[in-house]
């Protein structure tokens, strides 16, 4: 078994457009399997031209529902990503951490914001 595996999003999706949640799910399935086996994973953004939060939520965000932050941080590395793609990914990751930390509390806090605006 390799010590480290590399997943090219371009190869998994078959296109430079990493935009559909269903495609993100395909990346997620591979990442989940690798992390469950304690493998180091490099996720390459090589050749990716367009990303959406919907794709990244499915591919990476939902990892936080089954793995803890330390585990993800130690096993998963990002490669070949542009700065604005990293910024989007960071936002997705922060959102996912908050979401899985306490989904009910998170939803309630936003509802209170809404009530204050009304």
């Amino acid at each position: 078994m390799p010590e480290e595996i590399k997943i090219y999003m371009f190869e998994v999706v078959g296109s430079p457009l990493c935009v559909a949640s269903s495609d993100g799910q395909k990346v997620y399935e591979r990442l989940k399997t690798a992390l469950e086996m304690d493998l180091n994973v490099v996720l390459s953004f090589h050749n990716v031209t367009t990303l959406t939060s919907a794709f990244l939520n499915a591919a990476i965000g939902q990892l936080y529902g089954i793995f803890d932050t330390d585990q993800i941080r130690s096993l998963l590395k990002i490669e070949d990503a542009e700065q604005d793609d990293l910024a989007l990914l960071k936002r997705v990751v922060d959102n996912a951490k908050l979401y899985f930390k306490n989904p009910e509390k998170f939803n309630r806090a936003i509802q209170e914001t809404l009530n204050n605006e009304a």
């Binding site: 949640s21 959406t52 939060s53 919907a54 939520n57 499915a58 965000g61 939902q62 936080y64 529902g65 089954i66 936002r91 997705v92 959102n95 996912a96 908050l98 979401y99 899985f100 998170f106 939803n107 936003i110 509802q111 914001t113 809404l114 605006e117 009304a118």
Partner: peptide, 21 residues
Amino acid sequence: IIWATEEGHTTKEGNLPGGLG
């Protein structure tokens, strides 16, 4: 609509975070 435009708010089902788009 205001609710849906708030960051972190999502009506997705299952274990999928959302609410950024």
